[in-house]
Design a binder for these strands. Structure first.
Lengths: 109, 109
DNA sequence: CTTTCCTTTCGACAAGAATCGAAATATTCG
DNA sequence: CGAATATTTCGATTCTTGTCGAAAGGAAAG
C-alpha cells in the first residue's frame, strides 16, 4: 500500500461520525446497509451522511451498489485489512528480530 | 481502546508529514531521535515539526524525553499496537465464525 | 554569566473540512 | 406520465488545521 493511500484511508476513519458509520457497516457485514438506514440509525442528516459516505468510498474503505432506489453501502474488508497490514509493517519494520517477533497482537514491545 | 482515542490517533497519522515522522521514528526504534535530527532528515522547518510532534505526542503515539539540550522522540509501539488491535476488532467483529477466522493478515474476506 | 545551541510558543495568514437546508437527480409504483 | 421515495449535489457558513518566520524558553559550554 502506498503511503498516500494510507493517509487517505486514515483520514477517512479519523472522524467521529465516519468511524461510527464504518463500524456500523462492519457489523452489518457483506450485505451492507442502505444509506437511509445508516442515517436513521446514527441520527445524521442525509446530506451530511452522503458527504461522509463519499469520503469513505473515495478512500476505498466501502463499496456501494444500487438496489432499487436505495444505495447499499458495505465495508470493504480487504481494504481494511490492507490498511492494518500497512500499519503493522510501520509498527514492526526496522526492529531487531527479537523485538520484531514480539510485535504481535496484544504484545508489541 | 475508546473510540475517541482511536480517532485522535488516526487523525495524528492521517497526514503526510506526520506519517513520515512516525515511520522515521519506528525505524529508529526505542532509542528515538532528536527533534532536530528529524527536521533535517525530512526537511521540515523546526516550528512545523514541533507542531506535528506535539500532535503525535498528544495522541500517545510517541514519547519524549530530554537528553542534554535535545528532546528525543521515540515511537510508542504499545500504543501503535493498541490502535491496530482496535482496527482489527472493527474489521472482524460481527462477522460469522467462518468469515471472522478468514480475517487474518493478508486474507480478510 | 554570557554565549551558543536546540526546541517550543506565538501570531497571522492560507487552505481545507464539517455541517445541513434546499434544490436536483434517479428509480419505482400507481 | 405523475406522484412518491431515496439519495446526492449545490451553496453558504462556520470551524479546524497546516504553515512557517520571529521571538521566547531551557540547558550546556566557555
Amino acid at each position: 500500500m502506498e503511503s498516500a493511500t494510507a493517509v487517505t484511508a486514515l483520514a477517512a476513519l479519523a472522524h467521529d461520525r465516519r468511524l461510527a458509520v464504518f463500524r456500523t457497516l462492519v457489523v452489518a457485514g457483506a450485505d451492507g446497509l442502505a444509506a437511509g438506514h445508516i442515517a436513521q440509525a446514527l441520527a445524521v442528516p442525509p446530506s451530511s451522511l452522503s458527504h461522509h459516505l463519499g469520503l469513505l468510498e473515495q478512500a476505498g474503505l466501502v463499496q456501494v451498489r444500487r438496489a432499487g432506489r436505495s444505495l447499499i453501502y458495505a465495508a470493504d474488508f480487504a481494504a481494511m485489512r490492507a490498511l492494518i497490514d500497512f500499519l503493522t509493517e510501520d509498527c514492526c519494520r526496522g526492529l531487531a528480530p527479537p523485538a520484531e517477533s514480539a510485535c504481535q497482537p496484544g504484545a508489541c514491545q
